[in-house]
């Protein structure tokens, strides 16, 4: 059976995606900055879905470690979920926070996915799924650094899809809107626009099996963002978003 590598497996979405692919019969490689937290998820996946599951340390910011890390795993599908989000005002005032966000969400993701893509191109098969964000569709004040890091990541994934197309490598961009996670449980989110991590995982898996290019979670976010992207800049710059 094929193997899926989940990068950022301690996040709510990472866990849900790992379970979804395990339920579909894939063996699972879980990777996170704190692999010691992954024991319960590993046993849960092995017992519920009767697939192999292993855990690894992965730090998106340690670029030099990425090649050896990937080389030891060689999964059939690589999924990046990891990302950092600080308060934008804090990040605006403290370069180290802004730098960590940019380097985790963009530089680190590019580092590991370049390596994965090279391997898949050589194999002439493979799949890469990148969890980006609707926040990357248009820059705005309330998502200044986070949004721009995701915009860069979205552009990278589009370029990678173009580069790898002829080599039979599927690259899928996922743009979730609001998601109920432990990080957002203190925010009042609009219920109709918000997904559970399990819903995100279902949509990601379906998109993967249908070889989609870019998917929004939920689907209507595509149209919400279409409207937002089409607001003229002279107007947009005056808005509080």
């Amino acid at each position: 059976m094929e193997t899926v590598l989940v990068l950022g497996a301690t996040s709510d979405i990472g866990m849900a995606i790992a379970k979804k692919f395990a339920a579909a019969g894939y063996n699972i490689q879980l990777a996170a900055r704190k692999p010691e937290l992954l024991g319960p998820l590993k046993s849960d996946i092995e017992i519920r879905y009767k697939v192999a599951c292993s855990t690894y340390a992965f730090d998106a910011l340690k670029y030099n470690s990425h090649a050896a890390f990937f080389d030891a795993l060689k999964p059939d599908v690589t999924i990046t979920i990891f990302g950092t989000m600080f308060e934008e005002e804090d990040a605006f005032n403290d370069w180290s926070l802004a730098e960590t966000m940019i380097n985790t969400n963009y530089t680190g993701a590019v580092s590991i996915l370049n390596i994965a893509a090279k391997y898949y191109i050589a194999q002439q098969k493979g799949a890469i799924i990148g969890i980006s964000s609707v926040a990357g569709d248009r820059g705005r004040a309330s998502k200044l650094i986070y949004g721009s890091s995701k915009a860069a990541f979205t552009a990278y994934l589009a370029g990678l899809r173009n580069k790898c197309f002829k080599d039979n490598v599927h690259v899928m961009t996922v743009k979730p809107g609001f998601v109920y996670t432990r990080m957002t449980e203190n925010m009042p989110l609009p219920k109709p626009l918000t997904s559970t991590p399990e819903e995100v995982a279902d949509i990601v898996y379906n998109g993967f099996t249908k070889k989609k290019n870019t998917i929004y979670v939920k689907w209507f976010w595509r149209y919400i963002m279409l409207i937002i992207k089409n607001i003229p800049e002279f107007q947009f710059k005056k808005m509080k978003l």
Binding site: D12, P40, L41, S43, D44, I47, R48, R182
Partner: peptide, 18 residues
């Protein structure tokens, strides 16, 4: 959210979970 299965001995019928 603390809902993981930790072990299941299917021979002895012993189940351990969060």
């Amino acid at each position: 959210k603390f809902n993981k299965i930790l072990s299941f001995d299917a021979a002895a019928g012993i189940f351990e979970c969060q």
